[in-house]
Structures are given as structure tokens and as C-alpha cells.
Nucleic acid binder design. Structure first.
Lengths: 248, 248
DNA sequence: CATAAAACATGACGTAACGTCAACGTCAAG
DNA sequence: CTTGACGTTGACGTTACGTCATGTTTTATG
């Protein structure tokens, strides 16, 4: 059992913050002593970590309470989704750093910048555009489901799925000169989609969002970049074409 | 000259925000029309960028005003310091991601975590200890060299190298129950090292550091995690054993 | 060219997530 | 047995805007 001071020191917040979280009901003490003192158990420590992670990602406390209050709330699944969100954050900061670099060059008499470019990484941008789709995609439930599915495969099966993945990327690279609409490229997209089925089957409209996320998330983008730096962008183009045709 | 709407759209803020910044004096319009309208020039765009960068880094508007109000304020110098601060931010997020990973393992019945560890990256601590090692590892010269080497390979060669990589990881997973010192595992480390030669040939003492970095860098760790969440840690163990034996 | 929609203006009040007293009870240590 | 650190509950203050309300000016359209 921890006292207010102990937990607040651990988490790097003030006692006032804990009182606030108690008041609004997102972190109730495990026990309240006869003297009125708040006492927190080990499970409160994990809850506090969750709260601070959500807060770090910009969620208002009220929503945090709503999410964590649901009885089907799964800590492990939430942590997985945090990883994804943290990845997004990091690549936003990478974009921002690039913008700062460009501005420095611009001021040193370098090439001109468009007014819009100056705020790349600062303004919410088009990330809000598919924020909803992304949210659905990184829904803890879906993440958990795909993890479950993936873990059920044997080592050999995992190897063949991953190998098929890199195989597709490399063949895609070879087919790049033909353009995104070429039959060979579209066939590769089809192979990619089939391979994706091994851990999640997205709806057609989610497929583009999935590709865009793959190319934005630094963890996945590294795999594309390993093959070729322009591959990620090309991939998104090809998937867009694929979806447009499939819809018709 | 930009109107309120134009500048606010550019910067990704609301007109209200610009009015607020005018009121508190941190961003005055370049000119005010006879109709009372605010008009902003190009220099306002750069000032706005500065304000948003400082805001992103958590400075209160009042301090931002104080800093930018000083007549010896240098935009280029400020941008340089922003880059440093953004770097710190990103390292903090990496630490946070590592904390999330550790918590996931902890919950999956893995090894225990100290209460303090749970908040690593969340509480405003300042541990930049291992930042140095990482910087050495990512020596620009080495990175550039390995990039050059890698790009020289044909598409087929790239594919076979990547396939061999995932193959080793999956076989490593299968061999995990035998322990890090088992002959089968050590043979796999040998295969891994041979495959690594394709883009960089580290000295024996650098090999451990390379493995550790692979397991820390979120971009590479994702590949390990895809196979199994505990694989990364096992890999480091195995490489350590390999190096110790090779030295003797 | 009228008129409607969009954009501009100035108050003025609302809010989220605490910070910061004030006034008072509790507890471990010297 | 006092002292000082820690605990409690109000209650008001702060930051950085959001959100009307109300009225004017500019721009687009039938």
C-alpha cells in the first residue's frame, strides 16, 4: 500500500493531481483509512501508468475514464495500442525536425519554402483525415485479435508468411518502372492483401488506410526503406489503384 | 499579406488563437486595415512557426513572448535549439516505448518490474545515460557506408538477404527452449553474423552492441516482436555467449 | 445589383487540468 | 510532547484557448 506522497513521487505528479483523479473518478484509492487517508495498491500503480500514457497522447481525462471504465478494458491490448500511438508521435517529431532543418536552410539563403511547408508537423494536417479509420484499425480489440491469430501459427508458417512479405516487396521494387497501374504490380498488391489475411482481414476501404499507416509508422517503414527508399510511397499508390478498381 | 483565416489555416490553428496571441502581445499583425481587419506579412509566418515550436515543447505563452521579445533574439539559433529539444523529446518517447514493452512482458507473467520502472519516460526524470552509446553506434560514417554497400546489391540479392534474416529469426524462436548456449542456437548466431556482413562487418566487441541496439531500436525490434515478444532479449543473450566463446 | 454566405470584429462567459492558498487533523521521530 | 512532514477538505486562481452573442464588411451567386 502506497500513500499519496509515495505514489505521486513514483509517477512524477503532485498529490493534488491524485486528489483530482480521485474526485473525477478515474483513479480511486484501493482503500481509505479510518483517518480519511488514501491508500493505493499495486493495481493502482498500473492504472496510473495507463492514465499517464493516455494523457501523454493527448486524451482528455474524461475520455480516459470512459475507456478505462469499460468492463472489457484490457491492459495488454491498451499497451499495444499505446506503442502504435507513440510511433505516430515519434514520426511527427521526425517530420518536425525535418521542417526545422529546411527552415534553417531557407533562412541561410537556401531554397525558398512555401508558407504551408513551414508548418509541416506542427499543424494537425491530414493525419486527422484518416484518424477515424486509423482508430478503428488500431482498436485494441483488433490488435488483440490479430495478435492471437498470429501467435497460433507454427514457426514454419510464420517464416513462410514473413518470407512471402519480403518477396512481394522485392518484386514490387522490380516492377516499379512499370507504374502503379500495371497488371504485374496489381497482382503483387493482390498477393500482399492475401498475405495480410494471415493476421487481419481489412475491409476494402480500410486497406488504403492500412497501407498508409504501414508507410508512416517508422517500425514498418524501415522494412520498406530497406528494400528501396521510394518503395513505401509507390506501395500506397498501387494500393489506391487496387482499391479503386476493386470497388468498380 | 494574409488574413486571419489564411494564416490560421496554414498554421493549423483557429482564428481565435490568433486573436488571443494578438491580445497577449506575442504575435501582432503587420498591419491593421481601416476596417479593423488584421493583416499578417511573411515575417509573421516565421514568428508563428517559432511560437508553435516553443508551444510544442511546452513553454507557456508568456515565456515565449519574453524570449521572442528580446531584441537579441536570433531565429536561426532558436531553430538549432529546437532541433536539440526535439531530439530529447524523441528519445523520451523511445524510452517510453521500451517501458510499454517491458510492461507487456511483465503482465504476460514475465519478470517483475519495480514500481519506479513502470513510469520510466512518463515522469519528468532526466536520464540521458545511454544516449551516448546509441550515438556512437549510429556513427554517420558507418551508417553511410552500410547504406552504400546495401544499395549496390541487386533486387534478388536483397530479397535473399532479407529472407535469410527472417529465416534465422524463426529458427531461433524454435530453438529458444534449448537455451542461449545450445549448439543449435550458436550456429544460428553464426548464420546471423554472416548475413550481417552483407551490410556491415562489426568487430567482435561491436557485435554485442549491435545486437543490443537492434533490440532497442523500435524499427528493428518490430521485426523481432513479430516473431515473438521475447525473441529480442533471447537474441542478445545468445550473441553475448557467442562473443564470449569466440574471444577464448 | 441585390442578397446571401463567409469572414472579420469585439466583448463576455465557459472549460480542463490542475496550482495555490487557507484552515485544520495525523503521525513518526527526537 | 512538541515539531515538522504529511494528510484532509474546500475554494479560488491560471493558462490557453472554446464557444456563443452581436454586429460589420467582403465576397460569391442567382
Amino acid at each position: 500500500m502506497f500513500t499519496v506522497k509515495q505514489l505521486s513521487d513514483m509517477a512524477g505528479v503532485t498529490p493534488r493531481t491524485l486528489r483530482h483523479y480521485d474526485r473525477i473518478g478515474i483513479l480511486k484509492p484501493s482503500r481509505i483509512g479510518d483517518n480519511g487517508y488514501r491508500y493505493y495498491g499495486e493495481e493502482s500503480v498500473l492504472s496510473m501508468q495507463q492514465i499517464l500514457l493516455y494523457r501523454e497522447l493527448g486524451l482528455p481525462l474524461e475520455e480516459i475514464g470512459a475507456i478505462m471504465g469499460r468492463r472489457d478494458f484490457d491492459v495488454s491490448a491498451a499497451l499495444e495500442s499505446h506503442k502504435v500511438e507513440l510511433g505516430k508521435r515519434m514520426r511527427r517529431l521526425e517530420l518536425l525536425t525535418a521542417t526545422v532543418d529546411r527552415t534553417i536552410l531557407h533562412l541561410k539563403g537556401g531554397k525558398p519554402m512555401e508558407s504551408k511547408e513551414i508548418f509541416a508537423g506542427l499543424s494537425p494536417e491530414q493525419e486527422e483525415k484518416f484518424a477515424l479509420e486509423a482508430e478503428q484499425m488500431y482498436d485494441p480489440q483488433i490488435v488483440r485479435e490479430s495478435n492471437r491469430k498470429w501467435k497460433a501459427y507454427s514457426a514454419e508458417k510464420k517464416a513462410s508468411i514473413l518470407a512471402e512479405g519480403t518477396q512481394v516487396y522485392v518484386e514490387l521494387l522490380a516492377a516499379m518502372p512499370q507504374g502503379a497501374a500495371a497488371p504485374a504490380v496489381q497482382a503483387l498488391v493482390q498477393r500482399w492483401r492475401t498475405n495480410m489475411d494471415h493476421f487481419w482481414t481489412p475491409r476494402l476501404d480500410q486497406l488504403v488506410a492500412l497501407a498508409e499507416n504501414y508507410c508512416a509508422d517508422p517500425r514498418f517503414k524501415a522494412n520498406f526503406d530497406a528494400v528501396d527508399p521510394q518503395l513505401a510511397e509507390f506501395m500506397v499508390e498501387a494500393v489506391k489503384v487496387y482499391c479503386m478498381r476493386a470497388k468498380a
